[in-house]
Amino acid sequence: MSVVGMTIVADGSPTRERSIGNRWLRLTRPVLGLLLPVLLAAAWEFIVRMGWASGRLAPPPSVIFAEFVELARTGDLQSNTLVTLARVAAGFALGVTTATIIGAAAGYSPMVRRLLDPSLQALRAIPSIAWVPLFVLWLGIFEASKVTLIAVGVFFPVYLGLMGAIQSVDRKLVEVGRAFRLSDVAMVWRILLPAVLPAYVISLRSGLGLGWMFVVAAEIMGASQGLGYLLVDGQQLGKPAEIVAAIVAFAILGKATDWLIALAAAPFLRWEDVVRQD
């Protein structure tokens, strides 16, 4: 990307031309990333159309698209998406809230950290899916156990991220706050919070990723609704197109929610001195 950018910048020396070049690049950059999947999909479509492969177990894009439309027409897509979204939202909210409170306390106070962190680290060593039978026994087979599992998945990256971020706040900047006699509240508000925010946002995003992972696990293991249920349903009824349609829906939702967090945080992180990655 940078090579292309540099060539264009070098060619168009006037700034106007350069900005046009940049805009063109910005528009084409996502398109470049789409090139490979689109090519592969088109190739597969072509192969099935030509009758070189049956496409029964690996349906071509047109069949998946048709399945998508069909699911949307019957309303199955919307209702299952809503159920899954609600589970992720509830689990994410629960996980983030507890992780933020405990992570902040453990990052701020060495006492709390010594008290809680060893236990939490021990719990973290358990693969979260292992909790499922216990959660089902405790909370039943319905929403509560699923939401709890998602919350557990979300909890750890957010807890670790926030605690680590608070501990690694630049002591020199805290000292600036002290030199200007900030109160404890002002210190948190004006120094700690902004200093911690970039790492916190990253931890939220990885927490959300895990949330999506665990909703699939929870729904595969027992649900009568949700996109994960569509996966199981498609498997049991031998409908690969339904499975792939659900996978595509997961991909879109995962990416969209991640993008929403990034978008919401962007105005507060404009100061960051990092090389733009997109």
Binding site: K172, E175, R178, R181, R190, I191, P194, L197, E272
Partner: peptide
């Protein structure tokens, strides 16, 4: 403790990067 009549300048600027 830090006092309002006393200001300090450190070896590094120590500007707050988010302001």
């Amino acid at each position: 403790a830090p006092h309002e009549k006393i200001g300090i300048i450190f070896q590094e600027p120590r500007l707050l990067p988010w302001l």
